[in-house]
């Protein structure tokens, strides 16, 4: 089992600052598209629900929230790469965080919404059970030490008016997904 130590609070905040890219948030209006506004806060986070819990990541990574269209599966793709769909004529890959951490894949349907994110060179959609949108989290703390799974990608934990929420270091998670695909 992977040993993992909690990061100090300052380190968690630094990670959050680093997670907010210079891309900013954008998104032209569309029928099913919901451009994400920039809250401007140091720790402006975007919330979604997966794995039976509430998670968030840097809102500045999110370019749009859209309804997930029909997914085209890709041959010989890892399970966490659910396939691709088209948005504004562009083919966008769909990442399933639940599958990545070894859990049951997110069940998608016609009403499923997805957050399109841009992290470094990668442009992809994150599929989730539900999308909460922007969340205001107070009292950010380092995550507890835990084993593998999603906890390996947590940067901090905090609370909002609905309860506890865990903050994912999304760029690190995406990079881990990419590296996991590289054949040995």
């Amino acid at each position: 089992m992977r040993t993992w130590a909690p990061c100090p609070l300052d380190a968690a905040r630094a990670i959050l600052r680093g997670m907010e890219s210079s891309e900013g948030v954008a998104g032209a209006p569309g029928v099913v598209s919901e451009p994400v506004r920039d809250g401007g806060a140091d720790t402006c986070l975007f919330g979604l629900r997966i794995l039976g819990g509430r998670y968030a990541f840097a809102a500045s990574l999110v370019t749009e929230v859209v309804r997930l269209g029909p997914i085209t599966r890709l041959p010989a793709a890892p399970s966490f790469l659910r396939g691709v769909f088209t948005h504004r004529g562009e083919v966008v890959p769909v990442l399933d965080i639940a599958s990545l951490v070894g859990k049951a894949p997110v069940v998608t349907g016609p009403s499923t919404r997805t957050a399109i994110v841009r992290s470094g060179p990668w442009h992809l959609a994150i599929v989730a059970d539900a999308v909460d949108g922007l969340v205001d989290i107070v009292n950010l703390e380092p995550p507890l030490a835990d084993g593998g799974g999603i906890s390996a990608f947590l940067a901090a934990v905090g609370r909002d008016s609905l309860g506890s929420i865990a903050v994912i270091d999304l760029p690190r998670l995406i990079e881990a997904a990419r590296k996991r695909s590289v054949p040995a």
Partner: peptide
């Protein structure tokens, strides 16, 4: 025609797509 998106290309190594 569309190219394979960068992230998908990084995750697909068989070269079939």
């Amino acid at each position: 025609l569309r190219p394979v998106p960068a992230f998908a290309a990084a995750c697909l190594h068989a070269g079939t797509v």
